[in-house]
Design a binder for these strands. Sequence first.
DNA 1: GTCTATAATCAGATAGAC
DNA 2: GTCTATCTGATTATAGAC
Lengths: 213, 213
Amino acid sequence: MGMNAIAPVPTPPPVKISFKAQMLLAREDAIIKVVNQLLAEKGFEAMTVDEVAANVGIAKASLYKHFSSKEDLAAAAMVGVMQRAQAFLDTLATDSSAVDKIKAVTRWTMGLKLNGEMPSLPSQNSSLRTTLMGNKAYMDGLMDVSDRLGAWIEEAQAAGAINPQLPAIAVLYTLYARACDPVLEFLKMGGLHENEQIIELVMSTCFEGLNAR
Amino acid sequence: MGMNAIAPVPTPPPVKISFKAQMLLAREDAIIKVVNQLLAEKGFEAMTVDEVAANVGIAKASLYKHFSSKEDLAAAAMVGVMQRAQAFLDTLATDSSAVDKIKAVTRWTMGLKLNGEMPSLPSQNSSLRTTLMGNKAYMDGLMDVSDRLGAWIEEAQAAGAINPQLPAIAVLYTLYARACDPVLEFLKMGGLHENEQIIELVMSTCFEGLNAR
DNA sequence: GTCTATAATCAGATAGAC
DNA sequence: GTCTATCTGATTATAGAC
């Protein structure tokens, strides 16, 4: 195209609004980051909205302009974690074995937990569970992750790497449970092991079991 | 002894006071039973003192004549569980192997959980943790159980039944974690397995691991 | 010791000015 | 959209009569 051509000037995106939208998203990301950290540290019920607002550095009323309830705040954090999980699954080499991918995810999950980045939800039924079940982004992410992990589990069972006598769903739950395994925090509190050692210990008990071989 | 013998009449125990004391204890046992059930069902933070009083069938103010705080209520329930655990340990045959005793305790613990009799505490720090740490009966019970389990673990490791490369403390934590394993409730919610099957599944993943053998 | 009634506090959510 | 100030409801705990 020649320099003299009168190129149709594409309508510029509305800069002012876009900028504001970016600010909005950045602010919401900051909020979610704080929520994520507090959820990991104290859990949903012990976390207060006042605390979130204080840590973000804004007024509580401003929080409610972004998220309409405490449950929504937590749900947004969970959606973020799920997206990170999906992104991690994407990075796994397609040429590695199914069981290796499973182990990589498990290590990654426990690393998050040990780093205080894994929100801990109430395991029992609660208002938060209800909100999460109705959150499409979260449920879609959870389904996607479960489908991908489930396929790997069955593949690993067929290949004789994972015990084929175990129901795949039980294996999946067992993997998910590593994300909130109290053994991780107990060992960390003990102070005798580095995070990497703790992960390898729990990896060993998880995949090889307590029995001697 | 002839019918005519004038037997010395033993001083009767102060019937009225003893009876009242028995009533007191029975009432407190009833309270603790309710607390235990609610703790298992909803956890400490979601359980309200009003709820406890209503389920026991007494006024809330009466509760506070027996226990001076919500934390004390929960602590009493935990002491009860610890006593039941100690009593169960006592029943284990001394001629069975250490690893069999360990497995028996683990099964028993998971059975409690599946029956809704295992109080679930907040794993994170909280007012309840503080109260529990300062409760001598609870701490003594915990120490006793841990000592006995710890001895069996080391015995089983020496006998080549439990993997001797694992730190005994990690094994102990792994066993304790079965008492609050979310895999149990997930599988139960799935409705595909009976409690016994669930226990054997988790026993398998716990002791034999996920890997195929 | 048990009750009814109430105090005291805390946390989620909102009103309304700017 | 952000703020200050406030509302509302729930919850722990207690006062005081019986």
